[in-house]
Design a protein around this nucleic acid. Structure first.
Lengths: 192, 192, 192, 192
DNA sequence: CATGAATGAGTATTCATTCAT
DNA sequence: GATGAATGAATACTCATTCAT
């Protein structure tokens, strides 16, 4: 009731606007992949490009915001895995599965995520690094219990998860067996 | 008497022109990755964009020509592996290594290769399909000797090879352990 | 008891705010020239663009405020010249030197000053006109003593001072002889 | 008769197109000063922005082309001065007058010309340097005949000519005495 | 008064592709 | 066949100015 229609009202309620942009951007990316332009999203959202740029100065920043909205969800998932899965190997496998899903939210997402791990920092970097840390924790547990190779690092597995997500883009489209890849991956880090 | 000396601008001989473009394009892609514009390559090659376009109507077509130039080389490698490697598992592993190298020729190459496996055919599709077939052959041998899982397909392994190549782009840059990935991959398809 | 300590965010006292903006703007212009955006200054000053806008509705207005802050200083200089320099020609020359310096405070300043003398009035106009009047006074004295040409007007000399300041921007950068220009200028209005 | 109307015909006759753009640009700059956008000129000329960029990749390049079209005219003027003016001082004065006129072709032109004399080279640099050389020649003659100060350089006079042109922008608009400035300038470099 | 979100026209620039010559 | 001029949609980004709160 007190909600003003989104008609034209600029609404100093910036948060509402920001959220609206995020909603539109999520849909846009989900439908068309991340290759679209920020201007297009601004237009869809019914705001000027300047408004979008104020909130999210780059595509990476927008993606980071979109992903951080899922942060809590991932945290819950991590805790659930920890709680419910006593086998450290299974736990790591499930966590990697979660990462693969996470990176598959939008077509093309793995690319900027990979870039964020490179030399040049991006708004996505801290998110990625955070998940690398979590991966390291799961990995350490598995290694301690002799369920994972010692020469693997969390960063490698994170990267492989991105790679699997990247590969899936094509795999899903042509009826390949996407669910196999995590298994391939698991065999990779598991002890013989 | 119509023979112009082979000095510098030899002859509008189309074949010669085509080859010249290919040479330039290879260098260009090798140095700057595949993201550059075709116009830039045309300029470097000293031909008009129209000429380049006549020979290679799209970047994919140009890449396909570039890759098919390596066809023979890969064939030789395939034969060498077959000849010298009696263990079918090792043979498959070496073949996948060869694929990873092959897909790493230019920065960004894995992307169009993956796309070529998707629904929309591209000039790269037949090249990729051809290598999928070869992968299937190596895989079949390994499976027959009980050295590879039966639920894996050549297509999956080809895709994983591309994915490893894709991931390496970042991995090499930040000092990760790139050489580890093929091992992870191998463990993935090998029998326990 | 309503007195907030003068710690850091002292008081929404408008005057204080205004002065703070001026301080920041002076530094900003001195470092980067006048081409920067008002938004940037607002951000640096820690106020919203609206606030800056309330105080100074345009860049010219801001510059005018900045320059009027130097009014007193220039007045002192004018009086000093008058007091200490008996030769009316020398006095005029020194005054023009002062103007050149004054217009060189910020990179790019001569441009809006010149514009302020044009048809369209600007917040800088009255400042400029004021100095034209002073120039006329110095000039009149010099003319009366037969030390300056009769066909020159204060406006012309003011404009030439701006022009010298404008030219200096480049001159200083490339090792020209900037100090020569005032001499050229002086020879220009002096009697043979 | 064989002239195709400029209707829509792309006309491989690029020169004609280029000339058309130049004509439009000259008018545009003459009317609105050089501050307008290249896009606007492209639109006026009825060509896409890409076409304009092909011919003139920057505003400086466009200005340089516009000015070089006047090169011959200036050369003729220089020769005429040399031929008809025996007094080396008068000759220099007339040359500077020519420069002032030249730099006054478009409102705002002196600015990029000054910049072209700075550290960063621009398409206008060689034009400017060329005229500096000519100025040096006229100056040398005047100096040799004891008609010009020895401490002045051609570069300084060229810069002062630009400065006078710059100042004139305002002067003309408000009825000042623009013609006086060259005299002021001349007195500046002349021997007492 | 202060705030800072929103605006949205504006600018520069690129590039795949077409097509007249 | 070859050429390269022309196209023009598309993209990224800026900034003075307004206005709701």
């Amino acid at each position: 009731m007190t909600q003003t229609p989104r008609t034209r009202a600029p609404r100093s309620d910036a948060m509402r606007n920001r959220q609206h942009i995020l909603d539109i951007a999520r849909d846009h990316f989900a439908e068309r992949g991340i290759s679209g332009s920020l201007d297009a999203i601004a237009k869809e959202a019914g705001v000027g490009p300047g408004t979008l740029y104020r909130h999210f100065p780059s595509k990476e920043a927008l993606l980071a915001a979109l992903l951080s909205a899922r942060d809590e969800e991932i945290g819950v998932r991590r805790d659930a895995i920890t709680r419910t899965t006593s086998d450290a190997g299974d736990a790591l496998a499930q966590w990697l599965e979660a990462l693969i899903e996470w990176a598959s939210a939008f077509d093309g997402l793995p690319e900027p995520l990979r870039a964020a791990l490179g030399e040049i920092p991006s708004p996505l970097t801290s998110t990625c690094e955070g998940y690398v840390v979590v991966t390291d924790q799961f990995l350490a547990r598995a290694q301690n219990e002799g369920l994972a190779r010692r020469d693997v690092r969390g960063r490698d597995l994170f990267l492989m998860a991105l790679a699997v997500s990247w590969a899936r883009g094509a795999a899903m489209a042509d009826g390949a067996s996407p669910s196999l890849m995590p298994h391939i991956l698991r065999a990779g880090w598991a002890m013989a």
